[in-house]
Measured scan of single mutants.
Amino acid sequence: MATGGRRGAAAAPLLVAVAALLLGAAGHLYPGEVCPGMDIRNNLTRLHELENCSVIEGHLQILLMFKTRPEDFRDLSFPKLIMITDYLLLFRVYGLESLKDLFPNLTVIRGSRLFFNYALVIFEMVHLKELGLYNLMNITRGSVRIEKNNELCYLATIDWSRILDSVEDNYIVLNKDDNEECGDICPGTAKGKTNCPATVINGQFVERCWTHSHCQKVCPTICKSHGCTAEGLCCHSECLGNCSQPDDPTKCVACRNFYLDGRCVETCPPPYYHFQDWRCVNFSFCQDLHHKCKNSRRQGCHQYVIHNNKCIPECPSGYTMNSSNLLCTPCLGPCPKVCHLLEGEKTIDSVTSAQELRGCTVINGSLIINIRGGNNLAAELEANLGLIEEISGYLKIRRSYALVSLSFFRKLRLIRGETLEIGNYSFYALDNQNLRQLWDWSKHNLTITQGKLFFHYNPKLCLSEIHKMEEVSGTKGRQERNDIALKTNGDQASCENELLKFSYIRTSFDKI
C-alpha cells in the first residue's frame, strides 16, 4: 500500500482533458527560462521544448504516446526543470519506465491550478516501474492521483506527508504495488545497510526511497516546507523545498512566496507586481503582455491589467481597466465587458449561442446573426445582446428569417469595421425574408467608422429604411451602385405612401 494514499474509496472516473512563447529569463536562482504550460502528445517531438525550461508557468501534460519505446527515452533528460506552477499529468506514455532521468531536479509542483483537485496525476502508464522524482520536495496545493499503472512499484516507500501538507485526498490505487509483488529495495538494503531515512506512518517504520538508488530526502521537522541542505541544516524561511546553503534567500532552489532578481522575498516591493503567484514583474512586463494579447485571437491570451499590486489576466467583477495605466478602477454604474472572439468572429444561430455573449459591452471581433427560429426570440436576444455598444469588426445579418427588427441591439452605437466582410463591408444584410426595420432612427444613433453597407434580398425592408441608415451611420456616399439592390429590397412591402385627393359631386333626387 502506498504510504499516505487512500484505498478502496469510491472515486469519480478520471477524465483526461485534452506555445513556446518565453516569458522571460528567471535569473540567477533558476538555471534556465520560464516556459508556458505545455500539452505534449502523440510523439516526442515537442518534448524537446523543455530543454531550457527551469519553470513551467502553467501545467505540463505528457500523454497518448503509443509508439514510443524505452530506448526512445534513454537520452532524454531535462535537468534544468525545477518547478511547475500548476500540475504534472502523465497518461498512456508507452515505453517510459521512470522519471528519474527525465526530470531529475523537479523540486516543486505548486498546484496553482489543479487537474480535478490533483497536482500530480500518473494514470495508465503501462510501462512505468517507478516514479523516480527523487528531488520532489513540495506539492504546495492539491493532491496526488496514481492509478492503474500495472508495473509501478516504489510507492509504499514514499512518505507523501513530507511532500504535501495533507495526504487525506491522495488516491493511489490499482498499481502493481497493490499486489505486494514489488519487493522494493532501498539503497544499501541488499548489503544489509540502512542508507535512507525511515519514518513512521500508520504504525509502520519504513525506509523512504524513490528507487533502488535514490533515497527520499527527509528534512528535520523544524525546517517545515522550506527544505534543508545535504547536511540537514534548514533553508531560509522564504525558500521552498530545498537550498544549497542554509538561511540564505539567494540560495533557495525555489521560493515559498515570490522570486525577485535572484532572491526569494515575502512580497513584491514597489515598483514590482505579483505575477502568477510566484514571481515579481515590473510595469513594462505587464504592459507588454497586455499589448501582445490586445489584437491576438490565441486562446488563453489575456490583456493583463494591474489590481491590488498584482498583474492579473482581467479586472475583477465591479472594476474596469483604465487604459492609460492598466489599473483596475471601480465602475460607475454597470461595468464594461470586452469579449474577445477566439477566431475573430462568432455566429449567433440560437439563443444558446447568444447567451455566451451575455453582459458583453464591447465585441472584439465580428458578429454573424443567422437565426431561423426560436421561442420568445426578441426578448431572449435583447437579454443577451442588448448591452453590446461596440463591435470592432463587422455585423452580418444573414438568412435570419425569424427577425423582424434589429432593435434587440438596443445599445449598439459603434461598428468600427477594423475587419470587413469580403474585404469591403462593415454591415452586411443578406436574404432576411421578414426583416422590416433596422432601428427606430428617431431614437437610435449608430456610427460606422469604416467599410460599406450591403443589402440584398431583404424583400420587406424598404429602401427608405436603408437610406436612413446611410445618413445616420455616416456611410452615405461610400456605397457603390450594386451594394444596395434596388429590386430585391422592399419588393414585397408597401414602401411608397402617396396622399390621394378626392373630389365629389353631391346629387339628390331633384338636383344634379
Rank of each mutant, 00 (worst) to 15 (best):
I40K: 01
C35W: 00
D39V: 14
A156I: 13
C264I: 00
D277Y: 14
V34R: 10
L99Q: 00
G32N: 06
V281S: 02
C286D: 03
I82R: 07
S284R: 05
N309Y: 05
L152M: 15
N42R: 03
C53H: 00
H226I: 08
C331M: 04
T85W: 07
N175K: 07
E147H: 04
E130N: 11
Q61Y: 05
Q204P: 03
G262D: 02
C315Q: 01
K129W: 07
C182I: 01
R74H: 15
A190Q: 15
N322G: 07
G318L: 12
E231F: 15
P330R: 15
P220M: 03
M38W: 03
V305W: 11
Y259V: 12
H307N: 15
L240D: 03
K67R: 12
S296R: 14
N195Q: 15
K80V: 06
I62Q: 00
V218K: 06
R279S: 13
C186W: 02
I82V: 10
D277S: 12
D288E: 09
H59R: 12
R256V: 07
E207V: 09
Y273T: 12
T221R: 15
E238T: 05
I163P: 00
T107D: 02
I139L: 07
C315L: 00
T211N: 03
N150Y: 05
F115L: 03
C53M: 00
V173G: 05
R92Q: 03
F78C: 08
V206K: 10
Y94T: 15
N257H: 05
G192F: 08
D75N: 14
Q204N: 13
S324T: 08
C264R: 00
P269H: 12
C335Q: 03
N325T: 07
A198S: 11
W160E: 00
N257I: 01
I82W: 08
D165V: 05
V144N: 02
N105Q: 09
L29T: 10
Y118S: 05
G58E: 01
G95A: 09
C301D: 06
K129I: 05
C209K: 01
R69W: 09
Y134R: 05
Y30L: 09
S225P: 12
L233H: 14
L29P: 11
C243S: 01
R69T: 07
R92V: 04
L131F: 02
N149L: 00
